[in-house]
């Protein structure tokens, strides 16, 4: 590992100023991904600006009925938060489906959004990778890609984003709050991560030196149910082969609000807008749910060894839609 300088500021503006003054410097939060990438030689920042002393670890209800989750709030604390569990169960469930208790105790909200792909070629510095070394090539396309993308990939990169939390946030219409040297801005979670295109080295729209200060959740739609479902190679402590997050209302047997997002399928959490078009206003039946999932997954372009993800994602979506619709109908009866 390369040597690095270290500083732990107590004010947010100081942290931002350190990054502006030191090109190549990185923020350090829980470190569960960054420390590993430094050990692997994937990255070697000359300065780490530790966010551990900043006042950004709170979870607070907002006047508009929403919730503001601080950037350095721990994944375990957010998952166990009573308001998250009762009003945003999809978020609590997604967090608890990811990583291990030890990792969730260290990992933060902002760090979770910024974690890098676990594509084996990205993590192995002895191989080419367009994400790690732009222009070096993508061995995954013809190599080991069973766990990689089926939607939205490019000739340059077939990596998936590994987060479960971000998939729930996409379905919740959450917004990421960013602070840079020039001020603050807000980006919808669905526009926060990029598709790879010809710049797979850029995972997100975060500008150099910008700091995530928090994630804002809007008030959930009245009467909405939400849940997260994940398929993986072992029962716990594994990344998603495919996952689905859903926020749903059903009124008089018809779908009202429907926000559906897939994980494990693409370079970003995949908000299923085509499926939502089919769902909205349609009868809440298995036939509708199948048509909706198929409408979204028609765009899939599986690689040689990951075609199984398409029916897997379809079955997860159809199953979760059916389960939440049944619960909504039972609750209304």
């Amino acid at each position: 590992m390369k040597p690095f300088a270290y500083v732990r500021p107590e004010r947010t503006e100081e942290a931002v100023a350190h990054l502006a003054a030191h090109p190549g410097a990185r923020f350090l939060a829980g470190g569960t991904n960054l420390v590993d990438l430094m050990k692997l030689g994937v990255t070697g920042p000359p300065l780490l600006v530790d966010l551990g002393a900043l006042p950004l670890d709170g979870v607070a209800e907002t006047p508009d009925g929403g919730l503001l989750v601080g950037a350095t709030a721990r994944n375990s604390d957010v998952a166990a938060h009573p308001v998250v569990r009762t009003r945003y169960p999809v978020l609590s469930q997604a967090l608890l489906a990811g990583a291990s208790p030890q990792l969730r105790n260290a990992a933060t909200t902002g760090g979770n959004l910024l974690q890098r792909t676990r594509c084996p070629y990205f993590q192995d510095t002895s191989t080419p990778c367009n994400k790690r070394v732009p222009g070096s090539g993508c061995p995954a396309r013809e190599g080991v890609h069973r766990d990689l993308a089926v939607l939205g990939h490019s000739a340059h990169c077939v990596a998936t984003h590994p987060s479960d939390m971000a998939v729930a946030l996409a379905a919740l219409d959450a917004e990421v709050r960013l602070r840079g040297a020039d001020g603050e801005r807000t980006v919808p979670v669905t526009a926060f991560h990029r598709l790879p295109g010809d710049r797979p080295d850029l995972d997100t729209v975060v500008a150099p030196g910008e700091l995530i200060t928090g994630v804002a959740l809007p008030a959930p739609p009245p009467g909405a149910l939400s849940a997260y479902r994940k398929a993986r190679d072992r029962a716990s402590y594994a990344f998603a082969l495919a996952s689905v997050a859903l926020v749903l209302t059903v009124e008089d047997g018809r779908v009202g609000h429907a926000a559906l997002a897939f994980g494990g399928l693409a370079h970003k959490p995949w908000r299923a807008r085509a499926a939502e078009e089919v769902l909205r206003g349609a009868p809440a039946t298995a036939e509708t749910f199948r048509r909706a999932a198929d409408a979204e997954l028609a765009a899939a372009e599986p690689l040689r060894d990951n075609g199984f993800k398409v029916p897997l994602a379809r079955n997860l979506a159809v199953g979760l839609l059916g389960d939440l619709a049944s619960r909504a109908t039972a609750a209304a009866a």
Binding site: Y6, G31, V35, D36, L48, D50, S76, Q102, L103, N105
Partner: peptide, 12 residues
């Protein structure tokens, strides 16, 4: 709280 000691820098 339980954590992985291998993924934390001691200075932090």
């Amino acid at each position: 709280r339980r954590v992985n000691g291998c993924l934390l820098f001691a200075v932090a």
